[in-house]
Design a protein around this nucleic acid. Sequence first.
RNA 1: GGAGAGGUGCCGGAGUCCGGUCGAACGGGCCUCCCUGCUAAGGAGGUGUGGGUUCGCCCACCGUGGGUUCGAAUCCCACCCUCUCCGCCA
Length: 428
Amino acid sequence: MLDIRLIRNDSQAVKDGLARRGESTDVIDRLVDLDSQLRQLTGERDSLRAEIRRVSNEVGQMFRDNNREAATELQEMSRQLGAEEHALDDKADALETELRSALLRVPNLPAIDCPDGASENDNVVVRTENFDADSYGDHQKVPHWEIGEALGILDVERAVRMSGSMFVMYRKMGATLARALCQLALDRNADLYEEVRPPTLVKTSTLEATGHLPKFAEEAYQIERDDLWTIPTAEVPLTSLARDEILSESDLPMRFCAHTSCFRREAGSAGKDTRGLLRVHEFDKVEILAYSTPEQASAMHAEILGRAEAIISELGLAYRVLDLCAGDIGNSAARTFDIEVYAPGADKWLEVSSVSWFSDYQARRANLRYRSSDGKGTTILHTLNGSALAVPRVWAAIVETYRQPDGAIRIPELLLPYMRGATEITAP
RNA sequence: GGAGAGGUGCCGGAGUCCGGUCGAACGGGCCUCCCUGCUAAGGAGGUGUGGGUUCGCCCACCGUGGGUUCGAAUCCCACCCUCUCCGCCA
């Protein structure tokens, strides 16, 4: 959520930011108008309340003085003031609701150094590592859904039978590999990032805090009976971890790491890059997230990107880092770097991590504040996060990249400690 | 799910029966200053959040939302949460 005071005082800057995203700026004029009306109204209402309070105290005093007649007169006057106050209050409430719901739908402003651009075609490739298109043999140019079936480690057919399309099931060493990836990601970050296992079912307000609601309700699974939602990412519970709390500046940055299932309806993407593990409704992911001061944010962003990148790199996979343009960053983000891994069998670059800085956009929604070490008062903190490792696509890239001429999968060295002694996955 | 108890500031805890100057006694903590070779003890003052502001102040918040009333932490209704016991269960 943007600061209403920024919209009030510098609406042009806000419009410019939204324009960089290719968003309409009409809503800003409406917000400025609503805000001004609301302040006018609440000002009047508060004066009335002050008057009612003053009069009521007088009434009390008169009763104590046994001056009943005068008291009754004042009571009548206060009753009328009360009716006026009530009417103003209703108006103010309606305005406030309207203002808030409009404000919740305004996306974050892109960072100054976020590249310009209208769509994913304008994203900037910052670097490409470990990639040589000619280095892949024919044995590596087999898509993981074929490899997985041949080795009996990926069972799409039965998963679809029990849950529907875009659900998958890992089996045997395939399941072990999926779990190994999670454990690797958790262990690698445990030096600085507190391991958390949060709930995967959350309230509406929790999904609102990250910006997933109200705009993207279609993307999440909802359990209406209990008014709960499944999380699309651990970013959601982790962002709300210290919701409504006031932290100390000396506590920052705070770093968290969580492995959870993630659920995405992927509405509208049926048939689009959905084969095998390319896009699934339920998957495992290890997320890393930080709360920081505004001053620490830039360094934290680099740290999280570095950590996400290092795992992919050390797993021996080819990847590239993209600096997303203003037209392609997510609703809540101010700046985002994507890591895409190359899958030689599918011959695609697969997004495996989105490392974002959200400035104070999510923190304002979640009411995450800190008290600065010197001065008084509180400041909204900043949030940042990224996938340390998203299982399905990394699993796919490993299976394709590490496929040997004989059809077996060699296990990357980094994963050996987690594979119960196996060094390769072979046909049954 | 059932029964009982309870939700007040950083913490403990009073106020709720009998509505009024209560954003809130008292104690602890914390901060500043004084005293003091140092420390401890002692003394004085300060110490919630958010919004508005003509920068004087004003308003809101005592679990949440409604209601009654001139006036609600206090009365009424609904809901949520916590604790204890019972039931159920991994």
